[in-house]
Nucleic acid binder design. Structure first.
Lengths: 214, 214
DNA sequence: CGGCTCAGTGTGACCTAGTCACTGAATAAA
DNA sequence: TTTATTCAGTGACTAGGTCACACTGAGCCG
């Protein structure tokens, strides 16, 4: 099944990877890496979701990005290769399975496989664009715009009934729980959503789409 | 002189690069790439400073990072390779000189030179860490903290007399000019800086360092 | 069942940051 | 010198973040 997930590589690379990769299973809520203890291997996510976030001194959090099946954790890898301090932490949001292999294998693959290089660079490009886009959002956009867009992302992932607390949404936005509560209340007053304890039902997607375009 | 700048590569790579690279000179204030027209080649900056920024619909700007001599423009490159839309624009803040070569050369170098791979990955790591750190700053830190830190960066680059307008500082912070003016006024009231038209003289670095640590 | 605990949410008061409109001051251009 | 133009200062207002505290539903335990 590992091989199946690696079909974006050529046949030879896939076989090579499947042989050496150690598939590991990790329960939800595990902290996978922190600024103090970065992950020391190349990791390819097979199943589950990893949340990569920054945490301030005051304890407020902001999501940098999520890793999903097929994603690799390029940031830790590159920090290892580049010898840089790693500024974020990674947490398993669900139980996860991942293929792990040591960095000398990573370097060997980079040297030998054009397909692997393409894969890795694609992963880097995605991360860079994600992060740059997020900076633009955080610095330049209104919170109602960003909340509407985030709700639409949740809908894409898990359908129109969203099972999340206001607190966890605030952590994704890098904002405060009260702010999220007030904005959601406003959305409910407009008839765009229906609020329940730990759950948000999206009633009017077009309205949210309009709001998310500002 | 190109070869001299490429000494972080092995001798063979340096020679290869020097042969094929086209050194170009570009005047200050030139727009090098935009979301609409990304740069289509691998570019290694030899001299000058390039500002890479995001621009909102409303015209507000925020600095993503600056490229300095020895840096390469990894974001455009990776977007080319990954076929992704590029979300930022690059502007020459000073006159610049750069070595430019087409992407097939880039791919060949990646395949053949471990040193070049290390260089490119180092560049990626630096960018990723920069961007992640910036998200944390923008989302979670106070504006006075960020301004103090930015002033200290300017001091490092250009000495304790900083020749910049409040508007340009606001663009670096992703904030508004009035906000920067007010904060600088407060710093002046504390005796930390002295303000003049288009110039800020830093009088008390330790105080700014304290403020920048929050 | 009633009462307990606790996570999740609602709310008002207050503070910080961003926006808008306008003024004045310094420099450059005519 | 007069006139533009760029840069900075300011007050009034809005948006968003912080703090303190009240309320509510769900699970638990006697």
């Amino acid at each position: 099944m590992l091989t199946a997930l690696l079909t974006h590589f050529d046949a030879e690379t896939s076989r090579a990877l499947a042989k050496i990769a150690q598939p590991v299973s990790i329960p939800a809520s595990t902290t996978l890496f922190t600024p103090g203890a970065p992950c020391r291997q190349f990791m390819l996510l097979l199943d589950g979701v990893v949340r990569v976030q920054a945490v301030s001194a005051g304890g407020r959090e902001i999501l940098l990005y999520r890793l999903r099946p097929g994603d690799s954790c390029v940031m830790t890898t590159s920090c290892l290769l580049g010898g840089l301090a790693y500024p974020a932490e990674g947490i398993a949001e669900t139980p996860i399975r991942a293929a792990v292999f040591p960095d000398h294998v990573f370097e060997q693959l980079l040297a030998e496989s054009a397909a692997f290089r393409r894969f890795v660079f694609g992963a880097y490009a995605t991360r860079l664009v994600d992060l740059a886009t997020r900076i633009e959002e955080v610095a330049l956009e209104r919170i109602d715009t960003r909340l509407a867009r985030l709700l639409l992302e949740y809908v894409q992932q898990e359908g129109s009934t969203i099972e999340r607390t206001h607190q966890s949404i605030a952590a994704d936005l890098g904002s405060a729980r009260e702010v999220v509560s007030r904005q959601l209340k406003a959305f409910e007053d407009h008839g765009w959503v229906e609020l329940g304890r730990g759950q948000i039902i999206v009633l009017d997607r077009p309205a949210l789409e309009r709001q998310s375009r500002d």
